[in-house]
Design a protein around this nucleic acid. Structure first.
Length: 805
RNA sequence: GGGAGCAUAGCUCAGUUGGCUAGAGCACUUGCCUUACAAGCAAGGUGUCGUAGGUUCGAGUCCUACUGUUCCCACCA
């Protein structure tokens, strides 16, 4: 028996504990069922989980549940990405210190503690959302196993020549004081100023005008460029010009990349102002002049500006240019600049020795792999393709940071030879251990450890390998790889998806997964992203769970279609609450008539009972079709509208039969019981995907006594016992239509719905069918007599009886 | 500048490979305490399907162009 009211506050916790204790969602290693594996992205441990995470993770979770209920042994691990820059930034913020102010050991310890604290919070939140991951399969990218896998991955690439150590221009964040990768850039619109400067021509009183937004780089100027087709400036070619304030001379060169209509059509080249400068640097073998140090301050070559932050230097230099009559004019502009996604700092370019993974040389392969993958929705593939086609640099994986996976690398102090660790010694920390052999090149035995750590993505990009026990359990690896599905939001296609494809290809020449499912973003009202800075109590996951229940929050995450951004709209939560309330009440009601009922296969069905089964079967098919396309929201729409139809039309039609077997016969009751039993059971299973708590509560108190399965979530979806009979469905709908018209008559006449009608005249072309269901129609409309006419569907009412109270 | 998504009722959105008179919920109006649910039920009005062409017997759906909007990428002199 069900309680009178459903109390989510106690029930949700109760069932969450039950599932954990019973291992309801555990992966069965020995099962014979086909495996469906999900490569769940481990969330970055950098603070709070916001509603966007909940949205994206729930969508994938629905798939896990669906597959579990359709014959698969679901492998659904949940991990945490807890190493690298994001964690360091979090710890620095929390502790109010900078990593370099404490020892490396001490900082690492702080990181580990912080990570543990946050992960507990993350895990609790996902559990309280009813997430059905198998928590026994949890993993951490900073764990020893992950570090080992990550270092193995590095060594494998090293042996295959896919990773190299070189001095090459790399993107640099002066705030985080580390190299970063192209994928970690974000563009931001910024206000800036074009400063038109005078570059005097050697041995002349003439000058050439050059517009620059970065006058602080004057000291790093190597040359100036004109376009070879620039007739106005072509006579400058071969001459030298004097760099303002610094008064050294640089040559005038020409290059096609110079745009005639930008600025003055003449550009200064500094090492490095932007990506074009790095290309010119290589092409013309220019001199390296470093104006900005690792932390964003001016260097020696800046002269009097040394030690100033770049912005301060810029202001000073502009003052000085004005004073020396070298500044012609200033024009304000807005332009898109690349900033570091983690901190918003404008990106610089630095020439330093870094480790790179080759990505540029295999563009064609990345495109091929992208095409082999099945993308849900398909249009998201173009984001991947766009990214691959526009790749400019190899993937820089070394970070000048502290908390992360170390490179298993030393350098010979004598000859500089790179010494890598033996695979059997992994994981290693080169800072605390030494190579086991002398330098293979020069035989010396003094080494300098690599103190950099790896990009966090270098580890995250092998989650399929980590979870499938690559190099640990070969049989298991073969069973799981490639994984079936990678679900993630569209913002990390260029990182997670791309890098994982790169690694799997280099390691094993396979795709890491067969399919990817890309979910959208949650937007605040005006179509703005809900970022951490914009999240508030109104959309805080915990508050929402408290206010509406986890089931309702889950319901909300199933709105919309896959891949599309949706606007956060609280209305959906209210609709979800209504749905759960209705589901509970409908179940309670139906079970008034199902206590001690045992469904019989040979039950003879009345037409409307056949109708609801057939209509339900039709809905099931659509539901499954949508799930096959990963359209979890559209699948739920089908189920939901069927359910309301079941309540408002079907239950109303048969309730009199259920109440009164003495009048309508035991057969009529049994027929309705049969249809109710199966329809409700199947609906509960399907709703269970979205609303696991309330459906479990209902199941445990009702169907379990008959069905015996320990949890509704361990059951299989089964076809309703009926064919899809389109004719029958149509006829049944005509009955509903007639009933609705009769209700309309009562409403118009301000009558109660139970008012008895003297006579109802139904016009239909399906008189025979109406004859069969006459009891139901009479019961639901309180009509005492029904007369039939042949023609298009219509109904008239001939009088009513108002009973005295 | 290149690419992608979206544009349907006041709001949020469905509308499958083209096929009856374009749907749902919310909101709004009116009524109903009906032996599950008043957090309920019933009934009701609401549309140049962004614009302009095209294909077709037939277009919200396919094609072309345009407009608006969001996102991705490039552009940092």
């Amino acid at each position: 028996m069900l309680e009178k009211k459903y109390d989510y506050k106690t029930c949700e916790k109760k069932w969450q504990d039950f599932w954990q204790e019973n291992g309801t969602y555990n992966f069965d290693k020995d099962s014979k069922k086909p495996i469906y594996s999900i490569d769940t992205p481990p969330p970055t441990v950098n603070g709070k989980i916001h509603i966007g995470h909940i949205f994206s993770y729930s969508q994938a979770e629905f798939i896990a549940r669906f597959k579990r209920m359709t014959g698969y042994n679901v492998f659904y691990p949940f991990g945490f990405d807890d190493n690298g820059l994001p964690t360091e930034l979090l710890v620095e913020k929390e502790k109010g210190l900078k990593a370099y102010t404490v020892s490396r050991e001490e900082f690492t310890k702080m990181c580990m503690e912080t990570v543990e604290k946050y992960e507990k919070g993350f895990k609790d939140l996902f559990i309280s959302m009813g997430n059905s991951a198998d928590w026994n399969l949890s993993y951490h990218t900073v764990s020893s196993d992950s570090q080992k896998a990550s270092q193995e991955s590095f060594l494998d690439l090293y042996k295959k020549g896919k990773v190299y150590y070189a001095e090459a221009p790399a993107l640099w964040c002066t705030k985080c004081s580390t190299a970063i990768a192209q994928s970690e850039l974000e563009s931001e619109e910024k206000e800036s100023t074009f400063n038109y400067l005078k570059f005097f021509i050697e041995d002349s009183n003439d000058y050439v005008e050059i517009a620059t937004t970065r006058p602080e780089l004057l000291c790093a100027c190597d040359c100036i460029f004109i376009n070879p087709k620039d007739e106005k400036h072509i006579n400058l070619l071969g001459k030298k010009v004097k760099v303002p304030l610094y008064n050294f001379y640089v040559p005038v060169l020409s290059d096609d990349k110079v745009e005639l209509d930008k600025g003055t059509g003449v550009v200064m080249c500094c090492t490095f102002g932007d990506q074009t400068d790095t290309q010119w640097f290589k092409k013309y073998k220019l001199e390296l002049k470093v104006a900005i140090d690792d932390t964003g301050r001016m260097t020696d070559i800046a002269g009097k500006y040394k030690g100033l932050k770049t912005r301060e230097a810029r202001t000073q230099i502009i003052e000085d240019l004005k004073e020396n009559d070298l500044l012609i004019k200033q024009v304000p502009i807005t332009h898109q600049v690349s900033v570091h996604e983690r901190c918003g700092t404008e990106m610089e370019i630095k020439l330093k020795k870094q480790w790179f993974i080759k990505t540029l040389e295999n563009k064609q392969e990345w495109i091929k792999k992208g095409n082999e993958l099945i993308w849900h929705p398909n249009f998201m593939k173009s984001r991947y393709m766009d990214w691959v086609e526009n790749l400019m640099m190899d993937w820089c994986i070394s970070r000048q940071k502290y908390f992360g996976v170390p490179f298993p690398v030393w350098y010979c102090k004598h000859c500089g030879e790179i010494i890598v660790a033996d695979e059997k010694d992994l994981p290693v920390n080169p800072l605390t251990s030494m190579p086991k052999h002398n330098c293979s090149k020069c035989g010396h035995n003094e080494f300098i450890p690599e103190s950099d750590i790896m990009d966090t993505w270098a580890t995250s990009s092998i989650t399929p390998q980590i979870n499938s026990k690559w190099n640990i359990d070969n049989e298991f690896y073969k069973k799981l790889m490639p994984m079936t599905l990678r679900p993630n939001a569209h913002d990390i296609i260029r990182t997670w998806d791309f890098y994982t494809i790169v690694k799997s290809f280099y390691h094993s020449n396979i795709l890491p997964w067969k399919e990817v499912m890309i979910s959208g973003f949650i937007m605040a009202s005006q179509g703005q992203k809900i970022s951490k800075s914009k999240s508030n109590a109104k959309n805080d996951p915990l508050d929402l769970i408290n206010t509406y229940s986890a089931d309702v929050v889950r319901y909300w995450t199933a709105t919309g279609s896959l891949g599309r951004d949706i606007i956060f709209n609280e209305e959906k939560f209210k609709i979800g609450s209504r749905l759960t309330n209705k589901l509970f009440n409908a179940s309670k009601f139906v079970w008034l008539f199902l206590e001690n009922y045992q469904p019989k296969k040979d039950t003879k069905l009345k037409p409307m009972d056949k109708w609801i089964l057939s209509k339900g079967r039709e809905m099931q098919k659509k539901f499954i079709d949508y799930f096959d396309k990963y359209e979890v929201g559209l699948a739920m729409n089908e189920l939901e509208s069927f359910f309301w139809n079941f309540c408002d039309n079907y239950i109303e039609l048969v309730k009199v039969r259920l109440y009164n077997p003495d009048i309508y016969g035991e057969d009529a009751k049994e027929s309705a019981q049969y249809a109710c039993y199966y329809t409700l059971l199947e609906m509960l299973k399907m709703f269970g995907i979205y609303l696991p708590h309330i459906t479990e509560e209902i199941y445990q108190n009702t169907f379990k006594s008959v069905e015996k399965s320990s949890s509704i979530h361990n059951m299989q979806l089964t076809d309703l016992p009926s064919e899809i009979d389109k004719e029958l469905i149509k006829k049944g709908e005509e009955v509903c239509d007639i009933v609705s018209q009769i209700r309309g008559y009562k409403t118009e006449n301000k009558l109660s719905l139970k008012t008895k009608l003297k006579k109802v005249i139904i016009t239909t072309k399906n008189k025979a069918f109406f004859n069969e269901v006459e009891d139901d129609v009479k019961a639901v409309t309180s009509a005492q007599e029904i007369e039939y006419l042949d023609g298009e569907t219509n109904v008239t009412v001939d009088g009513f009886i108002v009973e005295e109270k």
